[in-house]
Design a protein around this nucleic acid. Structure first.
Lengths: 169, 169
DNA sequence: GTCAACAGTGTTATAATGTAACAATTATGC
DNA sequence: GCATAATTGTTACATTATAACACTGTTGAC
């Protein structure tokens, strides 16, 4: 099992550097509002707040970390409350689950059909979400060859990102 | 979370069909013995038995299912006992962990360097371990483009296998 | 051979993640 | 308004995994 990540407030600046993160979060929330409205599903206060907490960094956040953050805001959040919000956000494609970390991360292009790959930096914790057609095509080719009917796929690469690697030193 | 799989004795015959499974297990154990001897590490009775239980089917087996099987044999197995055996087998590359199922499966070609992909059938539970150079190359290309230094990767595709799909009916 | 050192296993307790079941509340359509 | 359904609250528990320390068996130096 992966070690527990520190609370969001303690995350290194690398997690949100190189871009206007406030804007980044605002955009994600606005897009979520728009999508939910168009689908006639309800992005309630709780669900929106959970999405916002997940977007607070580009590192995956665990369900219990989200629960603690909600509690820090005075909400008496119990596990089912968090997991239901996560389930909703997953169903709507607004977040993804990183299976190898048991953690959740905001989807950077919700609303579009995509099979995504994640590149997880073990130094700073940042996860890059990539939609690489080559990887997708290679997997599709393998499934076809096997006669396998794919429904969902998990591609997670753990390593060191460009910001944290030797070249960045 | 994935539903708990039934105990090995109850698994559908599809899990081991199409080949001489006794031979399959025996080969895996023999290869494990050979590899451990060559590396000068100890494949103890416990470790060998856990490996054998994992190889009992081509479906992933959970740590607690292994524990129950060991107990069924009179061994008083507690979680750390099982996890330590699993850790050893993982380190030696004799088994793999399927992250999306929190379960373990025998490696079909241990000893060789390989980045593997898993095709998990949601009907029969069988997992096919594939080493597709195309997928590997595509992922390597993406990491290079990102300046990302990969260390380990997880590729798991869930769907319906050829034996269980509509074409097999 | 014996004994020290270490690897492996046993044992107890607990942490981390996730779900079931039902009650209370809030939103929605009529 | 009010019945209905969706959402959230609450309690309890299931599943997966690890920490810490005790005990046992193996190995190698002498």
């Amino acid at each position: 099992m992966a070690p527990r990540r520190p609370p969001i407030a303690d995350l290194p600046p690398a997690l949100t550097r190189g871009h206007d993160h406030g804007r980044c979060v605002a955009d994600a929330l606005a897009e979520a509002e728009r999508l939910c409205a168009s689908r006639d599903v309800r992005l309630t206060e709780l669900r929106k707040r959970v999405l916002e907490l997940i977007w607070a960094s580009h590192a995956p956040v665990g369900a219990y970390a989200i629960m603690d953050l909600l509690r820090g805001e005075g909400r008496n959040a119990m596990p089912p409350t968090v997991y239901r919000a996560l389930d909703f956000l997953l169903e709507q494609g607004l977040i993804h689950r990183i299976a190898s970390l048991n953690a959740y991360i905001g989807c950077s292009h919700p609303g579009e059909a995509h099979a995504t790959q994640y590149f997880i930096c073990k130094r700073c914790g940042t996860v890059a979400e990539i939609d690489n057609p080559g990887i997708d095509a290679a997997i599709a080719g393998a499934t076809k060859h096997l006669g396998f009917l794919p429904e969902s796929q998990t591609v997670e690469v753990v390593g060191v990102c460009a910001d944290c690697g030797p070249a960045a030193r």
